[in-house]
């Protein structure tokens, strides 16, 4: 195994693109090192990207924020601006692992790991976040929703490096929330999860809604019908019930050591409901 700290993104892409063996990009390392320890993967090349330009920065941009790929959960949680604009995304990121893991883990790493149970991903999908990718052919932007393609798999091509995630501006009366279910209070992988982002009219009527679920399908899913069930309502019981039904109908989970199909489906609906109500309250809606 070689460990390399390239001088710039171009070199980083070229290194990974040109590696014939197995390569891994290292940011926070909280997934990669676990895989090394478990001997799940033995990379020939590790490319550390933390030191590259912009990787550790959070920058205000067009009313939103661009979050560098190596920004840790702890750093994100300390950023009052992002926390105020996208509290659901920040709380999702902060749920990952322990305080120690938060000192290293990154949102982009969470995304690239390709886990359907990744905590930050439903929140980013609900937020309609966009990943910026540096590849062999230059730079491009791809919605976060389109990055995961299955457990442990992504749509990234060889040589691609996600350099940042962009969380867009949002109007007044809008907010988001994220909830997951785990058997303990900390340190577990989500059994099911839900990220919800809402935009309200001044009178509290829901104008736009995005509901994303985790750990209930091969990838994080955006449940458009669930969002649609909320639009035009003030989140009355019928609207919530319709949203939950749409969420449950989308679930296509597996039964494993962490939960059954039945349990994941039921819990995803419950979490979607609870996250919706939190987001609604945060956006200034009153029930």
């Amino acid at each position: 195994m070689r460990y390399v700290k390239p001088e710039n993104l171009k070199d980083a892409s070229a290194l990974i693109g040109g590696e014939e063996g197995i390569s891994r990009i290292l940011a926070g390392g909280t997934d990669v090192l676990v895989q090394l320890k478990a001997e799940m993967v033995e990379p020939d090349l590790i490319v550390d990207v933390k030191h590259l330009d912009g990787m550790r920065e959070i920058v205000a941009e067009d009313g939103g924020y661009r979050i560098g790929a190596a920004v840790s959960g702890a750093e994100l949680g300390e950023h009052t601006g992002v926390k105020a604009l996208w509290p659901g995304v920040v709380e999702a990121m902060e749920l990952i692992g322990s305080t120690q893991v938060q000192g290293r883990a990154t949102m982009v790493g969470n995304l690239c790991n390709g886990s359907p149970a990744a905590d930050s991903v439903p929140a980013m999908v609900a937020a309609d976040a966009v990943a910026r990718i540096h590849g062999l052919a230059g730079e491009r932007d791809i919605p976060v929703l389109d990055i995961p393609t299955g457990p442990g798999r992504t749509s990234l091509a060889k040589g691609d490096i996600i350099t940042s995630v962009f969380l867009p501006a949002r109007p007044d009366h809008a907010s988001d929330a994220y909830l997951r279910f785990i058997p303990r209070t900390e340190m577990d992988i989500a059994v099911a999860s839900a990220g919800v982002s809402l935009e309200l009219d001044a009178d509290g009527t829901c104008r736009a809604a995005r509901v994303a679920l985790g750990a209930v399908a091969p990838t994080v899913v955006l449940v458009e019908a669930a969002g649609a069930a909320l639009v035009g309502t003030k989140l009355d019981d019928a609207a919530i019930a319709a949203m939950v039904q749409a969420a449950e109908a989308t679930c296509n989970p597996i039964s494993d050591k962490r939960g059954t199909v039945e349990y994941r489906t039921k819990t995803a609906g419950v979490l979607a409901k609870r996250a919706t109500l939190i987001a609604y309250a945060r956006a200034g809606g009153q029930k």
């Binding site: 460990y3 550390d48 840790s72 305080t99 893991v101 000192g103």
Partner: peptide, 16 residues
């Protein structure tokens, strides 16, 4: 502590 952040030293490559 690594550069002022609490971390698990088992999840840090020495080379970093």
């Amino acid at each position: 502590m690594l550069n002022g952040r609490l971390v698990c030293s088992c999840l840090v490559l020495a080379g970093e």
